[in-house]
């Protein structure tokens, strides 16, 4: 229904008189027609045009897939004065190679990232994109939208954090600046007015990557916890990020270093099950820590059962993620 229209209905006739049974439209002149209103929508064709449109109208809201934004509009939580549609900017809808990295357009849809050719390059991101929701959402939702929305349960975010991706941000006057994705997700650096995330630079690691997600149901659902894990054989690194348990993806750095030191990078790369389990527990304890023991030496508080279960879930996910990456 037209609840988001921006034209005020002006006619408020007293229908007691006009209760028109003679209009031939059925009882009381009921129809299912409601007047639709137009809205200011700009559809720029390039990143710089989009930035210019946003600069010209600071109240305008950029919209890519709209899977979060339009839900808020429909729920009446947001009434954007104008929209800048990013769907026609073809330069950000694909990807290209750039000295050992992939430069991903922010307008890449989750569905596109889930395809096998992409999965061969960045398997972790592809798995996260495939798990992100039902096909309707994946067809519309974009990588850039996932980053900017920064929902704690955003599925691509822990993968980007584990990959240590870099954002290329387009600003007014053709300006470009780069920030690590974790800075934006953690709120250390924000987008300035008129700026748009244009590209995401992701290293090509040529090694196994896993993304595992626990949800409450078999069908698509928000993650209760997720773990992204990538191997970086060149730097002999294991990088792991845990999503959905905090406001931003968490990196258990000590656990990463510890497990990387155990792996025989030049040989089989396998680990004994006990090491995998220990890694899982290490990651889980780092991300969901025990309450700080009180100073006075009294009985320390214990985690509530739901948090303990979450910790168990993260441990199982991390163990499985590492096991699959090394198998």
């Amino acid at each position: 229904m037209c609840q988001s229209c921006h034209v005020r209905a002006v006619s408020t006739y007293r229908t007691a008189e006009r209760n028109s049974r003679d209009t031939g439209e059925g009882a009381a002149g009921l129809t299912t027609h409601a007047p639709q209103a137009s809205q200011t929508v700009t559809l720029p064709a390039s990143l710089d045009e989009a930035v210019a449109a946003l600069t010209a109208m600071p109240t305008a809201v950029p919209v890519a897939g709209g899977t979060d934004l339009m839900a808020a509009v429909n729920a009446g939580l947001l009434r954007p004065a104008a929209l800048v549609g990013l769907g026609r900017i073809s330069e950000i809808r694909g990807w290209q190679y750039q000295d050992g990295h992939a430069l991903l357009g922010a307008g890449l849809t989750l569905a596109r990232m889930g395809r096998p050719d992409f999965a061969a390059l960045i398997p972790g991101l592809a798995a996260a994109a495939r798990a992100a929701g039902p096909p309707q959402i994946r067809n519309a939702g974009t990588l850039g939208g996932n980053i900017v929305t920064s929902a704690p349960t955003g599925d691509t975010l822990p993968v980007l954090a584990a990959l240590e991706a870099t954002l290329i941000i387009a600003g007014p006057g053709g300006a470009r600046r780069e920030i690590p994705v974790s800075h934006l997700l953690a709120g250390r650096e924000m987008l300035h007015p008129g700026e748009l995330v244009g590209f995401v630079r992701v290293p090509l690691l040529h090694a196994p990557q896993t993304f595992l997600k626990a949800t409450g149901r078999t069908g698509p659902g928000r993650a209760t916890a997720s773990v992204a894990l990538v191997l970086d054989p060149a730097r002999r690194n294991v990088r792991c990020a845990v999503g959905a348990v905090a406001a931003m993806p968490l990196r258990p750095l000590e656990a990463e270093q510890w497990v990387a030191s155990l792996i025989d990078w030049d040989g089989e790369r396998g680990l004994v099950p006990e090491a995998l389990t220990a890694f899982g527990d290490y990651v889980a304890a780092a991300c969901i820590p025990d309450p700080v023991p009180p100073q006075d030496g009294s009985e320390p508080a214990t985690l509530p059962p739901a948090a303990l279960h979450l910790r168990r879930t993260v441990a199982a996910l991390a163990r499985r993620a590492l096991g699959r990456a090394l198998s």
């Binding site: 209905a9 006619s11 007293r14 229908t15 002149g29 009921l30 299912t32 027609h33 409601a34």
Partner: peptide
């Protein structure tokens, strides 16, 4: 199918 949320009448509030 016209659902109840689709109802409309002239001059409605």
């Amino acid at each position: 199918f016209p659902y109840a949320a689709d109802l409309w009448a002239e001059g409605l509030l």
